[in-house]
Computed example of a mutant assay.
Amino acid sequence: MFTFCSLYAQKSLPLDTLKLKEAKDMLADDYGNLYIYKNKDFSLTKYDSLGKQIGKMMLTVPYKIQTVQNPLSVPLFSENGQELKFVDQNMNEIQRVDFKQKFGFIKMAYAEDLQQLWLLDESTKRLIQYNFRNETIINSYPFDASFDDLMDLLVYENKIYILTRNSIRVYTFKFEKIFEASVENGKRFRRENENILVITPNTILKYIPEKEMVKIFQDPDVQIVDKNTLSYFAIKANKLYLYSLEKNKEIQPQTESEPQSKDTQQEVKPSEEKTSEPDTQEKKLEEKTQEIENKNPGESSIQKLIEEISTLQSAGD
């Protein structure tokens, strides 16, 4: 069951509207830190949850931020510069990988970990698995798909995820397409363990393997949205809002209680009937005794009474 964010508590965060103005993209790590990218001056600025600036980078060409899930090593790819760089928690560059000398034209790069990259080489139509630590190509797969409007690339569990501006496609390494769906204004992927999410300007969708895309967040008034493992973060009218992912606990009806109460009633009922039998028997004996005495007021009726009692007791047994 998926619920839209309108059902969650909305909270405004103390980030200056000037810091959010002209923001091209925003990402949130699991510590609540925010990364604001501005295309106007190619700047990437990191803020903590209270709006305090932690670090800032001034870039010379446009870069695409892949993910900030590991704030100690944030990968940024530049198609224009044909390079990928990693920055640390203070936005200092710690690693740079240059593709110009070794490859044709890299259209998209995906950093799987701190050793391996997946590269889409548009000039050779190949998907390349590359160890950038020792500069060796591990594998190369023919990939003759369209590179038009390509927005993001993700490789996970032997599946290749391609996001364009208007669609998501999933392939095997044999270039077999196993899923395709329309996506409006796709921006990037986000992977949370085995879950694959697609981020758009105002919507977040979850991929149900080989079945469908399900919306887990949607707000038409939002300009930029992202999420970490605890919350959604959204920029709306140059203000930053947080939507908690924690749901209110609901009391579920105990469907098994009815049969249990019926069983209890069935157990109690026979014991109630047993308890009432002696009272009824005593009443009948009293009535019979009174009847005998009324019929024979002048003589002793003990013998007849004993006989009648014995008869009633036998009948009761």
Rank of each mutant, 00 (worst) to 15 (best):
Thr124Pro: 05
Lys102Arg: 15
Arg133Gly: 12
Glu122Leu: 04
Asn166Val: 11
Val155Ala: 02
Ile106Asp: 09
Val97Gly: 09
Phe103Ile: 00
Asp144Gln: 10
Phe143Gln: 00
Leu119Val: 04
Ile160Gln: 03
Gln82Thr: 04
Asp98Arg: 13
Arg165Thr: 15
Ile94Glu: 07
Lys177Glu: 09
Asp121Pro: 07
Phe147Gly: 02
Glu157Ile: 12
Ile168Met: 13
Lys177Ile: 07
Asp113Ala: 07
Asp88Val: 00
Phe147Lys: 05
Glu112Asn: 07
Tyr171Lys: 00
Met91Glu: 04
Phe105Arg: 09
Tyr110Val: 03
Lys107Leu: 02
Tyr171Asp: 09
Ile106Arg: 05
Asp152Tyr: 05
Ile168Leu: 12
Glu79Ile: 03
Lys107Pro: 05
Lys174Pro: 04
Lys177Asn: 06
Ile106Pro: 03
Phe86Cys: 12
Gln95Asn: 15
Met91Phe: 04
Ile160Ala: 00
Val155Thr: 02
Tyr171Ala: 06
Trp118Ala: 01
Val87Cys: 08
Lys85Met: 15
Leu120Val: 01
Leu84Asp: 08
Tyr156Glu: 07
Asn90Cys: 13
Ile138His: 05
Phe173Cys: 03
Glu157Gln: 14
Ala111Asn: 05
Asp148Gly: 13
Lys174Asp: 05
Gln129Gly: 01
Gln115Asn: 12
Arg96Asp: 11
Ser140Pro: 05
Lys159Pro: 04
Glu135Cys: 08
Phe175Ala: 11
Ile168Asp: 07
Ser78Lys: 02
Phe175Val: 06
Val87Arg: 08
Asp98His: 13
Asn131Leu: 06
Val87Pro: 09
Ile162Lys: 08
Met151Thr: 11
Phe103Val: 04
Phe77Ser: 10
Phe147Met: 10
Asn134Thr: 11
Gln115Ala: 09
Gln116Pro: 06
Tyr141Ile: 01
Ala145Phe: 13
Asp113Val: 00
Asp144Val: 10
Asn80Lys: 14
Leu76Met: 15
Phe175Asn: 12
Phe77Gln: 09
Glu93Tyr: 12
Ile137Lys: 00
Pro75Val: 09
Arg169Lys: 14
Asn139Thr: 07
Asn134Trp: 10
Asp148Leu: 15
Ile160His: 03
Thr164Asp: 10
Phe143His: 02
Met151Cys: 14
Pro75Asn: 10
Gln129Cys: 06
Ile94Met: 09
Arg126Thr: 03
Glu93Phe: 13
Glu112Thr: 07
Glu122Asn: 02
Met108Lys: 04
Arg165Leu: 15
Ala109Gln: 05
Ile137Asn: 06
Phe143Arg: 02
Leu153Val: 00
Arg126Trp: 01
